[in-house]
Design a protein around this nucleic acid. Structure first.
Lengths: 210, 210
DNA sequence: GTCTATATAGGGATAGAC
DNA sequence: GTCTATCCCTATATAGAC
């Protein structure tokens, strides 16, 4: 049996928001693409914002599952690659949120609060991981450096896709763009690493240079 | 004598774009605010995009003057504080560009190309300055680290205002927000500095923590 | 649950008088 | 240069039939 209309609206809206940017997709576009009537769409959702909020809720749920606190074991660099990879995959899936982040959060108090919460949690998460690396002896950094770096990690992660779009240059397929962003994040912590890991990252740079 | 209408339109548009976001300001709003007729506005500008392009040209000219290549003398940290301050002031003056950066550049090829050029120039500029610090013996970093850091500096500078908006928390008056962003940028290069300067920055952190 | 038809509002933009 | 009047179009949203 075909998926419920409500779900189909959400799915196609996500695809169109991601592709064209949420401000540039109207409810009529969505209805057209689905080959349903605008009236039908409004039977399932009060308004466009209602669709956006539902998609954001999907996003929030997924990203929350990815931002798991570090467990008892001290983290290593492999853990970080993996966690960044999972986070970036989810952000890519809902990249419309990031494309017009300020506009979307400015006009909707609910989304603004929830997004601020995600950022806060991400920053705490990053801080804990960095502290873990210090505790594991993999890196050395002061408290102030850890805090500043955690903020910078979150900032770069949040706006990497926008940056990559805006700096021009042909966009790769999504997965390569993401890999480059993850590398860029790793280079934020590279200078704090002990020589072995630091040199390793420097070597990897050639694979990601663009 | 009062300023020419054309200039008044540009001035008030800039103020309104900065305050409400460019997508949320219509030509009618602008005309209302100026207490002129919409028809008059369209006598001076072909359309809204024409206004945006003119404001962007103003911005580009100013930011180009700020991004001066380092002169013969090797740079020190004071030079960097100063240059960042000048750049951030100009970005703040035209912050509407940054608020909806992806949307604005996506729909206008000309702005897209010009903004990409600014980013490219900023990255080259940052790279040169970092190399200068290395040459001056103030910091140590590999070529790969310099390149990655230059990119991160530009990325953080580009999206600092958006980040600050979106993370919530009461916004300070503009000047304090900017100072915090500049500090955040300095912390990107802190780990590469020799001990003296690195400790100095770490001490400053208390003034900027938020 | 879905459609057709329509109401309403607003934004972009132009013509023509002054 | 400026205004009034207006047109066109698109977007959101609703009513009521099926």
């Amino acid at each position: 049996m075909a998926p419920k209309t409500r779900e189909r609206i959400l799915d196609i809206s996500l695809a169109m928001f991601n592709e064209r940017g949420e401000p540039n997709v109207t409810t009529n576009h969505i209805a057209d693409e689905l080959e349903i009537s605008p009236g039908n769409l409004y039977y399932h959702f009060r308004n466009k914002e209602d669709i956006v909020e539902n998609l954001f809720a999907r996003y929030e749920e997924k990203i929350d599952r990815v931002m798991v606190a570090p467990d008892e074991r001290l983290p290593n660099l492999e853990d970080i690659w993996l966690q960044l990879h999972l986070a970036f995959e989810t952000m890519w899936e809902f990249r419309f949120v990031y494309r017009d982040l300020v506009d979307i959060t400015s006009r909707n108090r609910k989304l603004r609060m929830h997004f601020a919460r995600i950022l806060k949690r991400a920053t705490e998460n990053a801080t804990e991981v960095l502290k873990g690396l210090v505790a594991a002896g993999i890196m050395r950094a002061s408290r102030a450096e850890i805090e500043a770096t955690a903020s910078n990690v979150v900032l770069v992660a949040t706006f990497w896709l926008s940056y990559n779009t805006v700096r021009g240059g042909a966009l790769e397929k999504g997965s390569e763009d993401l890999a480059q962003g993850i590398f860029q994040l790793m280079m934020l912590i590279a200078p704090f690493l002990r020589d072995e890991e630091r040199l390793h990252l420097n070597t990897l740079a050639n694979n990601y240079r663009k």
